[in-house]
Simulated scan of single mutants.
Amino acid sequence: MTYSKKDDRPLVSVITPSYNCSSFIPETIKTVQDQTYFNWEMIIVDDQSKDDSVSIIKSLAEHDSRIRLIPLSKNVGAARARNIAIKEANGKYIAFLDSDDLWLPTKLEEQVAFMQKGNLAFSFTSYSLIDEEGKSLNIEVKAPKEVDYKHLIGNTTIGCLTVMLDKLQFKHIEMPDIQPEDTALWLLLLRQGYKAHGLPKVLSKYRIVSNSTSRNKFKAAYRYWKLLRSQEKLNFVKANFYFSKYAYNAYNKNRGSQPASLLNGGK
């Protein structure tokens, strides 16, 4: 069904990888459809799910032409799935939303206005945490006013579900094939001299899934260490310094104090 409601504001391309997400994807799509900002396209790249994710997404897309499904013939991983969607994106702005996370209704409207007001290339917002059942964990991750490369490298303060990029201001946007792939991309962009601007308002909900890779603290820590050494090419001393900052911030988060970081790269 063609979506007919008019919106003259810039098109936003929503990038969503999906894999065995049938339990969550209907609610995720609904939160995009419920946006007060109507001019969006949602590009869902299914990474060869084994459940009925594809049939569910197809059914929802039949009733909303803004939803586009790209089913893959082989499993390629979240980074490559996102990159396929990015290449297909027609929007001025690119926003990221994983298949189990949620947006508040004014997320796109408020963030696009924020981007336009400052002619920003890169923005992100505050967000809250929910459990697997969607119940609030009473934890908010607050977005600082501005993040540069030096700040981010020891603090994974940018939640992927909150990021919006102005596609026209970057020469190339592609998630590296290294985990955590979202943090890896933010570091690549900020290393070029860009800054990420924070909108200090909770506009998204990040779902903590019990069997996700990011909930395994040892694996998450190893991935971050590998990122510092392999992509950022830091020597052992510098890598150890920034890794220590990362671990300290993660520890504060797990104590329940105001989190400066989250182990949230790649679910």
Results as ranks from 00 to 15, higher is better:
E133W: 10
Y3A: 03
L189G: 07
A260Y: 11
S123A: 15
R229C: 04
P176T: 02
W225I: 10
K135Y: 14
R9Q: 09
N249I: 05
S128F: 04
I139K: 11
P17T: 04
A260W: 07
L227C: 00
S49P: 04
E88D: 01
T157L: 14
R68W: 00
V209S: 01
W186S: 12
P10T: 13
D52A: 11
I57L: 02
F218V: 11
G159S: 10
Q111P: 10
N235V: 07
L137I: 15
D47I: 09
Q35I: 01
G118Q: 04
S18A: 15
R207W: 03
R82S: 05
S49Q: 02
L234C: 10
C160W: 15
Y93Q: 05
L190W: 01
K238S: 14
I86E: 04
A121D: 14
E41R: 14
S73Y: 03
G134W: 01
E110I: 03
E88K: 07
W186L: 10
D101E: 05
I153K: 07
A121N: 05
I173T: 02
N20R: 13
I158A: 07
L188M: 07
N240Q: 08
I70R: 06
L262H: 07
K253L: 08
R68M: 09
S73E: 11
H197A: 03
T162M: 08
G198Q: 15
Q192F: 02
L262F: 13
I29L: 01
L203E: 11
V12D: 07
V76Q: 09
Y149S: 10
V76A: 08
N119D: 11
A78I: 09
I44N: 03
K6Y: 05
L185T: 02
T156P: 03
K205W: 09
K233N: 03
M42P: 00
I70F: 12
I56V: 06
S99G: 05
I158Q: 14
L69H: 03
C160P: 07
Y149V: 07
Y248F: 11
D51I: 06
I56R: 02
E181G: 12
K58Q: 14
W103C: 09
S244C: 02
L120V: 07
Q179A: 12
Q48V: 05
L104Y: 15
E41Y: 05
H197D: 02
V141Y: 05
N138Q: 03
W40H: 08
T36Q: 13
W103G: 01
Q179S: 14
S59I: 02
Y37M: 10
S18H: 13
V237G: 00
L137F: 06
G159K: 06
K267H: 12
C21W: 01
N75W: 10
W40T: 06
D100T: 06
I208D: 06
L11F: 14
M164I: 15
D8I: 04
S53C: 02
P176F: 00
E109H: 05
K145D: 11
S244H: 03
W40C: 06
